[in-house]
Design a binder for these strands. Structure first.
Lengths: 354, 354
DNA sequence: CTCAGCCATTGGAGCGTTCAAATGAATGTA
DNA sequence: TACATTCATTTGAACGCTCCAATGGCTGAG
C-alpha cells in the first residue's frame, strides 16, 4: 500500500483523464467508461486502466463532470438563519448523519443559510442555478411551509425531515412518531404506579407539538386515567414552563410529561421552588434526550429521537428520488425510544415508608 | 420588483452568458467582464449588460467557472467522525457563523466527515482534487495535529479554530483566551467574598485544558489565595467529575470553577449527594455557556465563548489568505465573557443570618 | 467468400466560463 | 497626412469531462 506516485498534492496538480489514458494506452473515453460503466470494458483492459488510475492517483474533477452532466453530486442543506432553539441541541447528530451517509454514496453536503421570509425560495433557486445541486434536504419544516410545493413544482428532488401537517403530503419525508414516544412514557409511568399524569406542551398550532399532546391524551384515556384540564401550554422557555406547570402541580399530578427537555427543566425549577424534588416527589419526563438530560441531577428520563437514522433516511430517500424522479413518494416514520433515568420513580404514595 | 422573467426555475434551464450577451448585443466576454471587472466597460455598455442580466435572471454557473479558474468558491469543513462531545454543544453556533460569513463573501461551506487516523489527510486531498475547494477551516485541533503542517506544505489555504500548543505556530488561527475567561471568573468570585476557590479541570495534556488551569493558578496567586492541592482532574463525564470534585469539597472550598459545563454539572451532582445546594452552599462556574447552563436550576454561571465571532474570523482569515497566499500569518485571540447566573453568590460565612 | 450483426473502443463535439491575444475605433503627436 | 497610443470590445482557445455517433475487428450465418 504505497501512496500514489507521481501525484502532486498541491493546488494545481491535476492528473487528468487524458493523462491516465495515455499511460494505459487507451482513449480518454475508455478511462471514463472504466469508472462509470466498467461492464463495457474487456476484463484485461479494465484491469490495465484501473492500474493506471491507481498508480497516478487519478480522481475525476467534479467541476468538469458537473459541467457536462449537470449533476454536481452536491446536496443542499439550509441551516436556519436565526437559531430556532427548539430542537437545536440534537441537530448536530442529524447533520453528521447527513454528511456521513451522503459521503458513502459519493455525495457531499453543501450548506447555505436558509433565509426567512420572501427570500427563502430564491436561496434554493440560487443553489440550483449556480451549484447545480442534485437536491435538497429540508428540516425545521413548518405548517404551511412553502418549500415542498415549490420544489415539487420545479421538479427538484428533496427529502424533508418532518411531515406536512396540513393538506396533502408532498414528496418524500422522514419523521418521528412523537405520539408513540409520549405513549411509551405514559405506559412507563403507569407501570411505576402513577395515575395522575399531566402534560406540559407547546401552544397549539405546531404539528409536532400537537402530535405529542395527542399521544398523551390517547394513552391516558387508554389507561382510563383523567385527562381533562390536565394539560398546560408554554413556549419553549424555562421560566414560562415553570409558570405553566403550576396548575398541574396544584391539581396533584404525581408525574409530568413535557414536550421538550427545556419544558422539563421548567418543571424541575417549579418543583424546587416548592421545595419538592424532581423524581423523588414528582416524576418528570422530557423529550429530545438532549445532552442536558444526562447532565442534570436527577438525570432526566427523556424520549430519544433517532436523529442518526433520520439523517441517514433523508439521504437515502433523496438519492432514490434523484435516481428515479417518477417513483412513488416514500414516507418513513420512526419510533423514538424512552431513555429512563432517575427522574421517574414510583409515586410517593406507593412507596413503603421506612 | 417583479421576479426575473424568462427564467425557468427547473432542473435544466440555464440562462448562459451567451444568451445574455445576445440580448445585450455584446460578446460573451463583455458580459463576463461586466461581472468580474466592470471598470473595463464603458458606463453605458455596463448599464445595458446589467439590465440584461437582471431581466433574464442570469447567474454564473459555478462548475464552469471552477473548471476554468480552478477555484470553486467552496470552503471545506470536516466535521468529526466520532462525536467528540467536548465542545459539541456550542459548535452549531460556529458552523452557522461559518456558513453565514462565507455566504456574504460569495462562498459556501462544503461538509465532509473528517476521518480519524491515517485516512485523515487523504480526505483533505480528495476535496482538493475533486471539488477544488479554495481552502479549509479546521476545528477540534489537537496537540500535534498533522493537518496544519500538511496543508502548509502543499500550499493550501486554511484557518484553524484553535492554536497549536506545541512547537511553532503554523498558519492562521483564531482562538479563545481561556485563561483570561477563568481569571475573570476568579475575580468575580473574589468580589463576592470567596477565598477558597478550587479548580476542576481535564487531565493534563490538552492545550485548551491546561490553558484554563493556568488562568486559575495565575488569578488565585494574584489575589494571594491558596492554590496548591486545590486542583482536581477528570475526563468529561458527569460521574467522573462528581467523584473528582470530592477532595475539593472536603478541603472546604466555597467555590469551584470547572473547565466545562459538563464538569460543572458533576459538581452539582456531588453537592446534592452531600445535601448541599449549588450556589447556596458552594458556588459553581462552568465553561462554554452551553444551552444546559441556562436550563438547570440554579442557572449556571458560565464562561461564554464568542463562537459566532470565532466562525466569522475563521472565514475572514481564510479568504484573506486565499487572496494573498504570501501575507503574514494572522492570529486572533478572543476574550470570552462571564455570564453570571444564580450558581455564584456570596459565600455562606459572609451572609447575614436572618 | 461475403456481409450482417455484435462487441470493444475511439473521435469529435460541446457543457459555460475566462484567459490571452487580437481587433478596431478614437485620440494625440509629429 | 501618417503613425503611435490608448481604450473598449471581440475572437479563439482551453479547462476536464461525458455524450453521441462512428470505427474497426471479430464471429457466425448464408
Amino acid at each position: 500500500m504505497t501512496p500514489p506516485a507521481g501525484r502532486q498534492a498541491g493546488r494545481q496538480g491535476g492528473v487528468t483523464l487524458a493523462m491516465v489514458a495515455r499511460r494505459a494506452g487507451v482513449s480518454p473515453q475508455t478511462v471514463s467508461n472504466a469508472i462509470n460503466a466498467p461492464e463495457l470494458l474487456r476484463p484485461d483492459t479494465l484491469e490495465r486502466v484501473q492500474q493506471a488510475i491507481e498508480a497516478m492517483g487519478y480522481r475525476p474533477h467534479r467541476a468538469a463532470q458537473a459541467l457536462r452532466t449537470r449533476s454536481s453530486r452536491l446536496i443542499g442543506y439550509g441551516i436556519q438563519s436565526v437559531a430556532v432553539d427548539r430542537s437545536t441541541p440534537v441537530m448536530d447528530r442529524f447533520l453528521h448523519a447527513l454528511t456521513q451517509t451522503a459521503e458513502e454514496a459519493g455525495h457531499r453536503i453543501l450548506l447555505f443559510a436558509s433565509p426567512t421570509g420572501p427570500a427563502l425560495l430564491s436561496a434554493y433557486q440560487e443553489l440550483l442555478d449556480t451549484y447545480s445541486v442534485d437536491g435538497f434536504v429540508l428540516s425545521d419544516t413548518t405548517r404551511g411551509d412553502p418549500r415542498q410545493a415549490w420544489l415539487e413544482k420545479h421538479g427538484v428532488p428533496f427529502a424533508a425531515f418532518g411531515r406536512m401537517w396540513t393538506g396533502r403530503q408532498i414528496g418524500d419525508f422522514v419523521d418521528i412518531d412523537g405520539a408513540a414516544g409520549i405513549e411509551a412514557a405514559v405506559d412507563h409511568l403507569v407501570e411505576l404506579g402513577h395515575t395522575r399524569i399531566g402534560f406540559l406542551g407547546w401552544p397549539r398550532g405546531s404539528g409536532a407539538g400537537d402530535d405529542r399532546a395527542l399521544g398523551w391524551k390517547r394513552a391516558v384515556q387508554r389507561h382510563g386515567l383523567p385527562s381533562r384540564g390536565r394539560r398546560a401550554e408554554s413556549t419553549d422557555e424555562v421560566a414560562h414552563a415553570a409558570a405553566a406547570v403550576e396548575p398541574l402541580l396544584d391539581a396533584g399530578m404525581t408525574a409530568i410529561i413535557a414536550a421538550s427537555d427545556t419544558l422539563a427543566m421548567g418543571c424541575y425549577r417549579a418543583l424546587r421552588d416548592r421545595d419538592l424534588s424532581p423524581g423523588q416527589d414528582v416524576s418528570v419526563v422530557g423529550f429530545d434526550d438532549s445532552p442536558a438530560a444526562a447532565l442534570v441531577s436527577p438525570g432526566l428520563t427523556s424520549i430519544d429521537q433517532p436523529m442518526t437514522t433520520v439523517g441517514r433516511e433523508c439521504v437515502r430517500l433523496l438519492l432514490a428520488r434523484v435516481a428515479d424522479p417518477a417513483r412513488e413518494p416514500e414516507h418513513v416514520v420512526l419510533a423514538p425510544t424512552l431513555v429512563v433515568r432517575e427522574s421517574t420513580v414510583t409515586p410517593p404514595s406507593d412507596r413503603l415508608t421506612p
